[in-house]
Design a protein around this nucleic acid. Sequence first.
DNA 1: TTGAAAGCGCTACCAG
DNA 2: CTGGTAGCGCTTTCAA
Lengths: 339, 339
Amino acid sequence: MKLKEFAREIGLSPTTVSRALSGYPEVSAATRQRVSAEAVRLGYRPNINAVRLATGRAGAIGLVMNQAGEFQLTEFLRGMTEQLVRDEMDILVTPVVEDGTEAEVNAYRRVAEAGKVDAMIILAPQPNDPRIPLLQGLGMPFLVHGRSEGSAPHAWLDIDNEGAIFRATSHLIDLGHTRIGMINGRKGMTFSLHRDIGYRRALEERGLTFDPRFVAHGNFTDEVGFTFARDMLEQGLRPTAFVAGSMMTALGIYRAARALDLVVGRDMSVIAHDDVFPYLTADNMVPSLSTTRSSMRAAGGRIATLLLQIIAGRPAEEIHELWPVELILRESTQPVPGG
Amino acid sequence: MKLKEFAREIGLSPTTVSRALSGYPEVSAATRQRVSAEAVRLGYRPNINAVRLATGRAGAIGLVMNQAGEFQLTEFLRGMTEQLVRDEMDILVTPVVEDGTEAEVNAYRRVAEAGKVDAMIILAPQPNDPRIPLLQGLGMPFLVHGRSEGSAPHAWLDIDNEGAIFRATSHLIDLGHTRIGMINGRKGMTFSLHRDIGYRRALEERGLTFDPRFVAHGNFTDEVGFTFARDMLEQGLRPTAFVAGSMMTALGIYRAARALDLVVGRDMSVIAHDDVFPYLTADNMVPSLSTTRSSMRAAGGRIATLLLQIIAGRPAEEIHELWPVELILRESTQPVPGG
DNA sequence: TTGAAAGCGCTACCAG
DNA sequence: CTGGTAGCGCTTTCAA
């Protein structure tokens, strides 16, 4: 059913119907009520593409999925969609086809230039991230999940990675640990940098020396956690504790411990960052895993809301949200053995 | 830049430009070449919403995300987007807001009626799945990932769950196991039913009696794996082997074994279904995990391709793909202790 | 408060 | 092989 048809059916003009359905103030409440009811009864729904053409709005937010296909994405998407569904906003997922920064930038460019979206979200930013000037140049609104030092002012939402890892590391030091392994995320990413800073600051404040052999970078996979943890644990003076970048990393570290007949929570401690998943919970691990915790789903939801505000005209430069991170102590962090 | 403007700029009619860019045969090769080159040079791109309105195509495939937000979704999406990006097809993700079958059906209805998509994909079907008559009634093309017994003919792509679990179970029986725990997916889902059938058929063919205490159903989470495995292992005559519905389930089972001081690969065996993830690999588990393996990413890609064909006019009823599942034996399946 | 009609930018029919 | 032009279904002036 089309607008014209529907309008004729209920004895009104297309204009009035359109206004009633879009909630314009100049339509009388009675008319609005009646139109809404009739629309439901007769099953009338505006054609979304016609609306979009007429209004010039795309009605969607763009999300570019990188090659890695990281496991946190489902939770993030879930949070976004929950917010966006009310506003008839879609989320449009595009892949980066080849690997590398350039391919990624091109993917953003394609989406932005095709006019398929009203705003985009930049994931996993780096300092001076090239996607920021790109979208600013194209006049495409966006929000950065994370931060990008050295870039022009822009909207961002980030969690306090530095603070979280600072507290996690300090906690381990409080327990007497002095050799603390750090298995961080991909090198170059802002969140990895911030976590490294938090880690080093904790060491420095307590007079511990930084040992580069105890720091590693890589994807958030159990393999990375396993390999680096094992390598570090096989060194002469091995770490007695680990800070892990993700739940998957922690899984790998637990595995490395078992492979070397070490017991987590007795022979060594582990604390990891947890984005909160329905299918893998820190509480259930054995021993239960101490974590720095922050919900990906919540972040996705809030980002969607902010993006809607930016589209509606809120100045993007004023949007900076830094979310605190919970520190949840469980069984996996214990005093250093014999300490 | 708009079509009219661009056409004037290069001295052609909008008609010819449109045809050249869409690859219509009646345009001379020379003209086509020139138009494409000029479009790049001048940065002309058709407005996607105008194209969609004019053609009546939505240019997107709909995917409804259920409440659970299952972890396999990222891989599936990745596979889909990789295929769709070439054809300028988007994928539109919508959430189910509340829980329950009805809410889910309503989500499908909303997407289909709004005309936002050219086709939809039905995930996690059940027998007589209500989404199938719904979409058929609305004339919305779709493809089922999985199968739905009792429904009218429709397009589907499934993996051979029954065969996979039959072989997995038979393998365990070959190793001498007679008490085999089965921690399956959510009750009522077709894939769970098929796996149950494969499991029971293997037992029957080898003259083993089916014991309902050894079978459990639940979400694909480590918690479900842990809880059910522990419960079964604490029974008097406990299972000596497990068939697990997912990698997360297997994680939970491994954990349950450790909690009870049992060693997987010695005191008990485990085999799980693996959808193949970059971040958690069966090879890396300790002991390495035997699996029935089938790539979610590949399935997503193939489904996208098939959906494109259906949209292009291929009769949906003829599309039935049953994918074989690999059986990969690793260290976690061993002869029954003392067998 | 309601309505008529001119677009929104493109495609595709009908001519040439 | 190329071009003129009438829609696609809605929104939004402008007028009443």
